[in-house]
């Protein structure tokens, strides 16, 4: 039976809708959205605030119930959250009473329940070192700066070895210096792992720098996909090299043009 086309898409959204009931009647955030994502792709979803891009991401995470349509990961419908979809939240959402290591370990223990204590610790330490926190394992999360906390957040998501990584404006709360720095960190870790990733952002440069494909969403209500843009820049990428690329401003203009209309 070779009728089915060779499908490499790992995440499939079909006729996806989200409606919030309000006292003034139903509020339709998203309607009839279709999107498929290939294995190993880095996708950015860009759009104005309130267009439902974060809602979309939280539905993929399983944190927000789906009103209509389906989201399927490897052909299996998403019904509830789980560690196969690692989430990096906008606020780092670390448990401040735990150390950096304990925060990462909490997830690792859930995903590798049968590993030895040392194996689990090694995984957690490895990812913390990857995000540049090699000497802050035992610092309380509350004592870390916001940027360092988000590094832990990234390490925590990668350490789950998820099938897909969901990043909800992960750098939205950071100052621009720290943001640049963390984009680089994220990209370096991602280059090693090549985990399929969906990132929500409203930063055009961030979207170009990180992703293979940028999905542009129209403003809500009734938000849907307005346009798509492939970013064919070579990897591994360096921020300055990307910005010097001859296509950079064409890509940037495309995105900004969409957002301004």
């Amino acid at each position: 039976m070779n009728l089915a086309p060779p499908h490499t898409s790992m995440l499939e959204m079909h006729e996806l809708s989200k409606v919030y009931p309000t006292p003034k009647g139903p509020y339709v955030v998203l309607e009839g959205l279709n999107l498929s994502i290939q294995e190993g792709e880095f996708i950015s979803i860009i759009g104005h605030s309130g267009c439902g891009k974060s809602t979309l991401l939280s539905m993929v995470a399983g944190l927000n119930p789906i009103t209509k349509g389906t989201i399927a990961l490897h052909g299996k419908k998403i019904k509830r959250p789980g560690p196969d979809r690692g989430v990096v939240f906008q606020s780092p959402s670390l448990f401040p009473w735990m150390t950096a290591l304990e925060n990462v370990m909490l997830g690792v223990k859930q995903v590798f329940p049968h590993g030895s204590k040392k194996e689990k610790t090694d995984i957690a330490k490895y990812y913390l070192a990857r995000v540049g926190l090699g000497d802050a394992f035992h610092k309380k999360a509350a004592d870390l700066s916001q940027g360092m906390q988000q590094r832990v957040g990234i390490a925590r998501a990668f350490a789950l070895k998820p099938k897909i990584l969901l990043l909800d404006e992960p750098f939205g709360m950071l100052d621009s210096l720290t943001r640049n720095e963390l984009q680089q960190v994220l990209l370096e870790v991602w280059n090693n792992e090549r985990i399929t990733a969906i990132m929500v952002t409203h930063d055009v440069d961030e979207a170009i720098f990180l992703s293979d494909r940028v999905i542009m969403m129209t403003s809500g209500p009734y938000a849907k996909i307005g346009d798509e843009l492939n970013i064919h820049l070579d990897r591994p990428r360096q921020k300055l090299a990307v910005m010097d690329h001859p296509d950079y401003y064409t890509l940037r203009a495309h995105l900004i043009n969409f957002l301004e209309h």
């Binding site: 959250p81 789980g82 789950l160």
Partner: peptide, 10 residues
Amino acid sequence: DFINVARVLR
């Protein structure tokens, strides 16, 4: 957010 983390980690 804490609750959401707990949910994601099951």
